[in-house]
Design a binder for these strands. Sequence first.
RNA 1: GCCAGUGUGGCGGAAUUGGUAGACGCGGCGGAUUCAAAAUCCGCUUCUUUCACGAGAGUGUGGGUUCGAGUCCCUCCACUGGUACCA
Length: 863
Amino acid sequence: MQPRYHPGEIEGPVQAYWEKNHSFEVTEEPGREKFYCLSMLPYPSGHLHMGHVRNYTIGDVMSRYQRMRGRNVMQPMGWDAFGLPAENAAIQRQVPPAKWTYQNIEHMRDQLKRMGFGYDWNREVTTCRPEYYRWEQWFFTRLIEKGLAYRRNALVNWDPVDQTVLANEQVIDGKGWRSGAVVERREIPQWFIRITAYADELLNELDLLEGWPDSVKTMQRNWIGRSEGLEIDFELAGGSGQPLRIFTTRPDTLYGATFMAVSADHPLAQAAAARDSSISNFVASCHSGGASEAELESMEKQGMPLGVDAINPLSGEKIPVWVANFVLIGYGTGAIMAVPAHDERDHEFAIRYGLPIRQVIAPATGESVDVQAQAWVDKEDTVTINSGEFSGLDYQAFFDRVADFAEQRGIGRRQVNYRLRDWGVSRQRYWGCPVPVIHCSACGAVPVPDDQLPVLLPEDVTFMGVQSPLKSLPEWRSAQCPKCGAMGERETDTFDTFVESSWYYARYCTPGAESMLDERANYWLPVDHYIGGIEHAVLHLLYFRFWHKLMRDVGLVGCSEPTVNLLCQGMVLAKAYYRDTEEEGRIWIRPDEVEFQQDPNGQEPMPVWRADGRAVEATGWTTMSKSKNNGADPQDLIDRYGADTVRLFAMFASPPDQALEWNDDAVAGSQRFLRRLWALVHRHHPLPTAPATDFSTADDETKALRHQLHTILQRIQRDMERHQYNTVVAACMELVNALDRFDVAESPQRQAALREALDVLVRVLAPVTPHICHALWEVLAMDGELLDATWPVVDPLALKREQVQLVVQINGKLRAEIEVAADAKDKEIQVIALADPRVSRHIGNAAVRKFVIVPGRLVNIVV
RNA sequence: GCCAGUGUGGCGGAAUUGGUAGACGCGGCGGAUUCAAAAUCCGCUUCUUUCACGAGAGUGUGGGUUCGAGUCCCUCCACUGGUACCA
């Protein structure tokens, strides 16, 4: 054995050993308990980043641990290979998206192997390969047949200069990122999948997901946003035209409606715009800017009266109809009733335009509230006022009376609404899975028949500009209508990449299947543990649950939910530095090119660019990204320290579910620990393997060491189960510290205890740092394969103590420590505590009022 | 704007889930080893006060519950993620 730790000489051979022995290739073993450990598949951006390293180390630690616990562990990996960055790379570097993507995959696969992750590569999925996406196309045509996929108009960001649809990310301050032109909100035809048909199931089954974090379940509940309300018609004054239909969750505020507001795209607004140029200017202005919710919700609320009145169906009062920029045609009915007294947004609008604010709800307690100053939005313990014959009711009573009233008269009905909208899956982009549809002038949108699938995406294309190349391939676009045989047009939209990532986990179970899935899926599914970033809490994880239910309803899978347990890791953050320049706009400077100058006035240290010594701006902690030039490259660290050090540090730096603020300096400390571990084993490895030693006659120091070993093991066991790997590593460090100080002398019992401790240490560290542990396992001449070694068990005898330390508090303040027999009675503890001089000094003459004893922990004396 | 989360020494974090705040590591300081350096090893390291023993304060802010609060409740502040076309 080498006296020093050389990761570079260990890790390659250990990885070669795993490869040669097919160590991570698994198959179904019906009699054996399986464990399917899934990490979110990466987008192949070109290089592994710290977020990947963290995510995949967590998964690998979990997988290796479960294997040591005897389970048949499957851990697959693949590539979320379609998406926008490949198109950007194509435009910038004149390289086809396919070529760029496949190169990136090759490089990143090598990086993953270099990290020593135990993946079964026979199951690899690459979503841009036809053998994968053809089944997605097949499945989509089933959804069309079932009426679960359909086409309608929807809002997009339109760049009027580049003549293209922009992603929300590409809209910066309401302008296109390339052209700089003011973006327009435009409606175009798009494909949708009817997720709202599953809204109740998606909502209710959250309650069954005990292995999911509460935060994620809450976010999904709020996202689905089920609300019970009332749809009701407001007639227009003058009796002309359709009544205005609105949806409200607060019918109890109906008497407080002082105006109506409609979307700029509402027929009423369109009609008014046609006869009034100032209204048409306003309507036009409502179409500028991005379509994202954050943008729509945070913009200044503006509106104009349309010169039309509506009639309140309860009070008969005439109230004006306005057009407002915050009402959207795609949500609900595109019209609202506004109750400024009891809705914050309406209140803000009423104040701005001097519209009346009328209180119709009051606290049931009789307290008064000032609705002129601020909207009062409470729904519980309220009573209606100023509401004619409906006054004096609480929320539910009012709701029921008004709903009955409206239903009897046929002017409205009870209605359940969801915030959740149907899933728009169309993208006007090239690098995605083609939507398998042919448009025929006679038959409409016709699904491509199974025997003509897959609709192949041409991979050898050149990007002329920002437009999808599919639009400029006439021979690809023209196709025969499967129904009538006439010439039609292929759909040029491709799928949202969330479609691919909604079912990849199932395909991992059935490599090579000549159908979408086969019966093997039901051995592995559901996933036992899914690990990925918290940023996917709603969208991906909701589509993932939804698609699983769609597959269940086609009979492809047996269970209802795709994963039993979910671990959402926090983001990996770094500081970023930039400078705004005249010529190039904002330039981002790599953190390692920034140094800090002490300000002579004793202010905060100032960041400066080493290249020119001039000041730069610093952001706070932010996600690592290519665009901000602040990603710590794991490759540098792997080259310098080896995979085990990087894995160890990634686990040690913070608990998996918390954000990790990256700091390169601390990595060296993890390497130091592995060097100490190596040196420790080197010092002791000639020790004989001691078979079952009786420690009952051991000396005190040996007993103390074993007590420490087994309490540490107990903590490690607990923390492994709750996935708190940072404290697992800390506990291992504590153990190494203790073993370093322990003198084995010539005592066989001491040697046996140390041997026992080394054995435990190598086993518990194996999931985190598998390479060094593989090597140490051989050095210690242990039996069998470390990968399948059993997880160590706590010896309850070693945990037994005769004496325990208790802390003594007086009025909650720590004053002394006492030692008592482990089984001491409360009375005895009282006597010992009061006898302590530090205790009596603090009590003085005061009378003891109360004695609180927490067994094995503390005594609190209240005086 | 809305939803969710986080806030503890110079830094990353720990705290048996209401019971000794600061485990473990980084950095720093002091020492050993060395011709010297690297590496390694030992000690100290929340703040204030004290020669010392000790005493006091302290977990973003302000309040509350409790014998006892980093942990539970309310208020406010700051930061992070998501916000439906980034993935």
